[in-house]
Design a protein around this nucleic acid. Structure first.
Lengths: 227, 227
DNA sequence: TGCATTGCATCTGTATACAGAATGTGTTCA
DNA sequence: TGAACACATTCTGTATACAGATGCAATGCA
């Protein structure tokens, strides 16, 4: 997304809402890394507001798990143990698997067609090795699967979990061969959804997240090692 | 839980944390009903604090979905459509089914034994028709299943979803025959978990939540009708 | 009588003020 | 030289102040 457009979105609503979006964006895009301090005064100066909306925003981000707080200490971007990271990936695999299964059963004809189109369009990006563009298509592809399940609460859970995982899987498409493998796995999911094969869709989605998980956890390990 | 003990728990930590627990408690126990206004000033007076911690608490409860806010309006206890309620129950069924499956695979010998004991202890309450005591045991039973999955993030998701559903299934054990049926369904889950039969445990848990769902949605309908 | 409008009371949203906790530094003493 | 203590600085947590938005009621007009 264009930077100007992003800033425009961030600017709507109350100041607190703006701060929630702005800080969440810093975390999800990786501008601030897990463990980094989110100083209230610095944040307030940075966005030219008082501490009050910054504090409320940090509280809300804490409630959804993006930041951690201890009394009388600065908030920090949530950092998790390898074990907890693994549990988030496992949960994500279960959730995506549910979405794929329900999508296979419930998607409308239009939704299935759009999913297929989105998927086909990304093929070109794989051959070009366009990592960032593919990443955007990838996000869109998964979002379609989440919506296709036709279950608002599952959508919320899976979206929230994805946001919390984002800081830990930023570089996934940089690993060699990851782009093609992702595409092939998407292909398995799409084919299963198109023929309304819930069981296969479910298995394919679970397997897909498992590969992402392996790649990211390996990456997290090496990042730790270089610190 | 004793009232004094509950108040003691609520009183620890920062004022904001106290307010989060206190207000969440009002909502989850049903002292405040879906749709009711959570006036900042009234809350502040009620708990003898300033508006600041109340506001922060409401923001956090909003972030996890227990209250709803619109700019320049009072926060209200989250009220959902029948459709959204159904989606929450379906999500809950999926999550409990995951927990049951993973519990069947992963619980330690001790965890399995404790689950069985907890379950057996509740048999007496069924015969006595002790709804409130059974309800407490029921909560404990399910919590054991959530923990048994040995996955921190799944535990978080299922606990959070349970809290959000709480306002809408308060009276479930008042319906005739519900106590016995709940016990029998627990029995199926326990037996499957004890013999490490993941598939059966999963199915039994899904079915169990489905009956709760049916009962609660029927109840919600009639509650709406009597308004 | 019915409807629009104005004014007031109430509440939210943000900024600021102030007290207390945590942290880091410099000094003192062994 | 090293450790410990006191002080100063910085930041958080809560209260308060104030401006703007909302809603309601009373009034005026058709």
């Amino acid at each position: 997304m264009k930077l100007a457009r992003k800033k425009e979105i961030i600017r709507s609503g109350t100041t607190v809402e703006q701060m929630v979006r702005a800080i969440a964006d810093l975390i999800i895009t990786g501008a601030m890394r897990p463990g980094e301090r989110l100083d209230e005064i610095s944040m307030a100066n940075r966005f030219e507001v008082s501490r009050t909306p910054v504090r409320e925003a940090l509280g809300q981000l804490c409630a959804i798990g993006l930041v951690e707080r201890e009394p009388n200490k600065s908030a920090v971007v949530t950092n998790v143990t390898q074990q907890h990271l693994a549990s988030m990936f496992e949960a994500m695999a279960e959730l995506e698997s549910i979405c794929a299964r329900l999508s296979a059963e419930r998607m409308t004809v239009d939704e299935r067609r759009m999913l297929e189109m989105e998927h086909r369009a990304s093929a070109r990006l794989v051959h070009q090795g366009a990592e960032d563009d593919y990443s955007a298509h990838n996000t869109e592809f998964h979002t379609r699967l989440y919506r296709g399940a036709h279950n608002d609460h599952v959508f919320e859970l899976v979206t929230q979990t994805r946001a919390r995982l984002a800081p830990f899987r930023r570089a996934q498409f940089r690993l060699p061969g990851r782009l093609l493998r992702s595409y092939e796995e998407h292909d398995a999911i799409v084919k299963a959804v198109l023929r309304a094969d819930a069981a296969s869709a479910s298995r394919a989605a679970y397997a897909h997240v498992s590969t992402v998980s392996d790649a990211s956890i390996v990456f997290a390990r090496s990042a730790e090692a270089t610190l």
